[in-house]
Write a protein that binds this DNA or RNA. Structure first.
Lengths: 155, 155
DNA sequence: TAAAAATGGTTTGAATTTAAACTATTAAGT
DNA sequence: ACTTAATAGTTTAAATTCAAACCATTTTTA
C-alpha cells in the first residue's frame, strides 16, 4: 500500500514534470519567435535550432542533424530545403559516401549567428538567474536518468 | 570573471536541460503512438492530451483546454473538430455565456479512458522507477522556478 | 562475389501547429 | 445607454510534424 501510494505520487510528479518541461519549451520558443519577428528576420525557431547545431560544427549530414534536434529525417529534408532557399546553408554531396549530403553554413549563415545566437542563450540566462548550479545539474541528471530508463525498457 | 564562467556553465546546463526535456517528451510521445497503432485505435497523441484534461473534469471551454494543454486556441478548434468526428466528445453552447462552447465526453469518450489512460501513466512509472521522490520533486521545483523567472521578465 | 541488410535522403499524405485577421458576444467605462 | 475593450471561437495560410513507402548507395554476410 505504502509502495503504491509512493508510485502514484511519483507518477503525478512525473506528469507535472512533463507539463513543466513543455511549458518551458513553449515559453522560450515564443520569446525567440517574437524577437525574430521584431527584427523582421526571415527564419523560424525550428530553422534556428538547425542553425544552432551547425554553428557548433558544420559539414554534418542530415540524419546527424535530425538526431541532434530530435526530429524525423523527413522533417530535416524540408527544413534544410527552406534554409537553402534563404541561402543560409548549402548541401554538398559527400564524395566518400554518396548517400550523405553534408550541410555547410554559407557566409550569410555565419553572419546571422552574431545576431541570433545571443537571443538563444539570453532566455536561458534569465530562466536560470535565481538558480544554483548544483540544483540545475541535479535536474539535468534526473531527466537524463528518466531518458535512460525509457530507452532501456524499449529494447 | 568567476561570475561569467558560472553564468556560462549555467547556460550550458540550461541548454542541456532543454534538450533533455524535449527528448523525454518525444520518447513518451513515440511510445504512446506505437501503443495506439498496435491496437488500431483511431486517435492521436495530441487528441489524447485533450482527452486527459477532460477525464479529470469535462464541461470546460476550448480556451481552458488550450491553456492546459499549452496550445493555441486555433489548434483546439481543429483538435476538437477531430474528436467530435470520432464521437469522443461533444460541443455544447454555454447558455450563460454564448461565446463559450463547453466540451463534454461522450459515452465512447469515457469508455476509451479505461484502455488509454493506463498507457499514459505507464511510461511515467517506468521513467521514474529508479528515482527518489525527493529528487523528482526538486526537479519539478527547478523547472517551475525557471518558468516563473521567464514569466516575470516578460511583463 | 552475390544476396541481404542497413543507411541516408526524398516523397507523400494526413495531422497539427502558430500567428493573424476575423466574427460574435459579453463586460467595462463613461 | 453607448462606446470601447476584452474574450471565445473560427478561418486562413504557411510551416512543420511524423510515419511509411520508396530509391540509391554502402556494408554485411553467406
Amino acid at each position: 500500500m505504502a509502495e503504491n501510494l509512493k508510485a502514484d505520487q511519483k507518477t503525478q510528479l512525473a506528469l507535472d514534470l512533463g507539463h513543466a518541461m513543455h511549458e518551458l519549451r513553449m515559453l522560450i520558443r515564443h520569446f525567440i519567435q517574437t524577437k525574430i519577428k521584431e527584427h523582421n528576420i526571415d527564419i523560424t525557431f525550428e530553422m534556428l535550432e538547425v542553425m544552432s547545431v551547425l554553428w557548433k560544427r558544420d559539414g554534418r549530414n542530415q540524419q546527424e542533424i535530425a538526431d541532434l534536434t530530435l526530429r524525423d529525417k523527413s522533417s530535416m529534408t524540408y527544413l534544410i530545403d527552406n534554409l537553402v532557399k534563404r541561402k543560409l546553408v548549402k548541401r554538398v554531396e559527400d564524395e566518400k559516401d554518396r548517400r550523405n549530403k553534408l550541410i555547410f553554413l554559407t557566409e550569410d549563415g555565419n553572419r546571422v549567428k552574431e545576431q541570433l545566437y545571443p537571443w538563444v542563450t539570453e532566455e536561458y540566462i534569465k530562466a536560470t538567474a535565481t538558480l544554483r548550479l548544483e540544483d540545475l545539474q541535479s535536474s539535468v541528471n534526473v531527466l537524463k536518468e528518466m531518458i535512460d530508463n525509457l530507452k532501456k525498457v524499449e529494447v
